[in-house]
Simulated scan of single mutants.
Amino acid sequence: MFDLSFTGEGHFYGETGYNGTIKIGNFSENFFSNNTFFNARQYQEQWLAAAERVLANGKSYFLVNVHDPDRANFFWSWPCSVIDGTVYIQNKIIFADQHCLSDILSFHTDLEEMEFTDEDGQKISTWQTDLHAMQQFSTKMRHLLA
């Protein structure tokens, strides 16, 4: 299973936006998406585009918190890579001083190859799903945005 969805409007540290949930297999985590730059539909459009890129190219990232680029120093994302038919997904901060927002939004940002251990040899939290789950999510998003 793979799913990203909003559960309602919310507030976080004085910001307004949307409460959301990501589900990957049996894993589930809540997140907050501010609305200073993206509205709910723009997030969902990015998620659909990201899912289609995973299916077509085997690599992409889902943005879940995009601040006003004039004030932001990072963006929250869930990058994923397909390796041997399995979709591996991690949580990653994209730093604004390393990647400009226009490149991030147009998928011209290369987040490098997914690493499964850090420089100290510690395992990096990684979740996995399959291509069928990604296809189901893509279909769901196409219907939602139609």
Score class of each variant (00 low, 15 high):
Thr86Val: 10
Phe27Gly: 06
Pro79Asp: 02
His67Cys: 03
Tyr61Asp: 01
Trp78Ile: 11
Asp84Phe: 05
Phe62Gln: 06
Gln44Arg: 09
Trp78Cys: 08
Ala49Tyr: 04
Tyr43Glu: 12
Trp78Val: 07
Thr86Gln: 06
Phe37Arg: 13
Ala51Phe: 00
Asn30Thr: 14
Phe37Ala: 12
Thr36Asp: 10
Ala40Gln: 06
Gly58Gln: 07
Gln46Tyr: 06
Asn34Pro: 12
Cys80Glu: 02
Glu52Asn: 15
Asn35Gly: 02
Glu45Val: 07
Asn57His: 15
Trp47Tyr: 09
Pro79Gln: 00
Trp76Glu: 13
Phe32His: 11
Tyr43Met: 00
Ala56Gln: 12
Leu48Thr: 03
Glu45Gly: 04
Arg41Gly: 10
Lys59Ser: 10
Asn30Pro: 03
Thr36Gln: 15
Thr36Asn: 15
Glu52Gly: 01
Ser77Pro: 03
Asp84Lys: 11
Gly85Gln: 07
Glu29Asp: 11
Ala51His: 10
Arg53Trp: 11
Ile83Arg: 14
Phe75Thr: 13
Ala40Pro: 02
Ala50Trp: 03
Glu45Ser: 05
Gly85Pro: 10
Val64Gly: 07
Glu29Gly: 14
Cys80Asp: 08
Gly58Asn: 04
Ala56His: 10
Leu63Tyr: 03
Ala49Ser: 13
Ser81Cys: 06
Arg53Leu: 14
Arg53Phe: 02
Asn73Asp: 15
Ala40Phe: 01
Tyr61Trp: 08
Asn73Phe: 15
Asn65Thr: 05
Gln42Gly: 08
Phe38Thr: 07
Pro79Met: 00
Glu45Lys: 14
Lys59Cys: 02
Val82Met: 07
Gln44Met: 15
Ser33Phe: 04
Lys59Arg: 12
Lys59Glu: 07
Ser60Glu: 10
Asn30Val: 04
Glu52Lys: 09
Glu45His: 02
Trp47Thr: 02
Ser33Pro: 08
Phe74Gln: 04
Lys59Gly: 03
Arg71Thr: 15
Pro69Gln: 11
Phe27Trp: 12
Pro79Tyr: 01
Glu52Cys: 02
Ala50Phe: 01
Ala56Lys: 13
Ser81Ala: 14
Phe31Ile: 07
Phe37Asp: 13
Gln42Ala: 07
Leu55Ala: 08
Ile83Ser: 02
Tyr43Arg: 00
Asn39Phe: 09
Ser81Gly: 01
Pro69Val: 05
Thr36Lys: 15
Phe62Thr: 08
Asn34Ile: 10
Trp76Asn: 12
Pro79Arg: 01
Gln46Gly: 08
Leu55Ile: 09
Asp68Glu: 12
Tyr43Phe: 03
Ser81Thr: 11
Asn73Leu: 13
Phe27Gln: 13
Val87Phe: 03
Tyr61Ala: 03
Thr36Leu: 14
Gln42Val: 06
Pro79Thr: 00
Trp76Phe: 09
Phe62Asn: 03
Ile83Pro: 01
Ala72Trp: 01
Val87Asn: 00
Ala72Arg: 08
Asp68Asn: 14
Phe27Asp: 12
Ala49Gln: 14
Arg41Leu: 14
Phe62Gly: 01
Arg53Ala: 07
Pro79Lys: 08
Gly85Ala: 11
Ala50Lys: 01
Ala56Leu: 15
